[in-house]
Design a protein around this nucleic acid. Structure first.
Lengths: 140, 140
DNA sequence: ACCGTAGTCTACCGATCAGCTAATTAACCC
DNA sequence: GGGTTAATTAGCTGATCGGTAGACTACGGT
């Protein structure tokens, strides 16, 4: 997985790891301190693994202090993730507006059906006209 | 994976799926229209699979129109993800401030070392005092 | 020098994931 | 009915993931 954004989202796609981040939000902590709340359900090497995932995602920085490995939160990668989401802000707000939703659904459905029907008719319009256009590669 | 937030993040942790969402941002599209840009690198069933992931994550809604399956974007689940991230906003802004970072790193390190040393000393303070506290279960 | 504590490393296991091919369903058109 | 297009399903791979147990490293205290 060479892609930073993918690594970030993937690291966040686990409740244990999110809990670890939440704990680090309250300040630095060692591995065993982080592991504490989970030791009933998980072993220490398990937590170490999760930490490594967070580390290679750049979300956690592990330093050393004698036999301890104090971990700190690094929210830097979250910025990219937040920036990505920002593009969908309009749609998030729209998804609350039920009436507007319904109306735009109707009009979209009609125009889309019309477009398809005309394509199926005599004129051999290439579908590619409707296809990739604004797909902005680096905000994907 | 019973957890909604995990499913959302996990669905976003793939560039192909993010590209599909980006395309849907510009309006409704059928499966083949969505598959178009990827057919050089991936087969149609592959795209169908990705769509199902997005669908079960609630990010895409598939309707039917004769033999076509028009898909629409549903940003609703992104709201929860955005809300989760919002908690880290402070840390994102802080991670830009290099000087403040360095200073707080120093002070945190010192106080943390002190705390550990005092724990290792005579008084058998239980670590649990420092542990789960504010870990707010449903914002994790 | 020895013991305890903190943490990591190395397999190993079962489950899930991403991708493919090939076959199948469902609808339309002639 | 027969052919075409749209899309899904089934079944198979190989890779990755989450987790474990057990051996190992590194450091501090006595």
């Amino acid at each position: 997985m060479p892609d930073t954004l993918s690594r970030t989202f993937s690291a966040l796609a686990d409740p244990t790891r999110r809990a670890i981040l939440a704990r680090l939000r309250t300040g630095e902590a060692t591995v065993s301190e982080l592991a504490g709340p989970f030791l009933g359900q998980m072993t220490l090497p398990g937590v170490t693994k999760h930490l490594k995932v967070l580390e290679t995602a750049g979300l956690v920085t592990k330093t050393r202090d004698a036999q301890w490995r104090p971990c700190t939160l690094n929210a830097e990668p979250l910025k990219d993730a937040a920036a990505w989401m920002e593009e969908y802000r309009v749609h998030m707000e729209a998804s609350l507006d039920r009436l507007g939703d319904y109306l735009s659904m109707l009009t979209n459905a009609n125009s889309a059906t019309a477009a398809r029907n005309s394509t199926n008719a005599a004129i051999p319009v290439e579908r590619t006209t409707t296809t990739p256009d604004t797909t902005d590669a680096d905000t994907v």
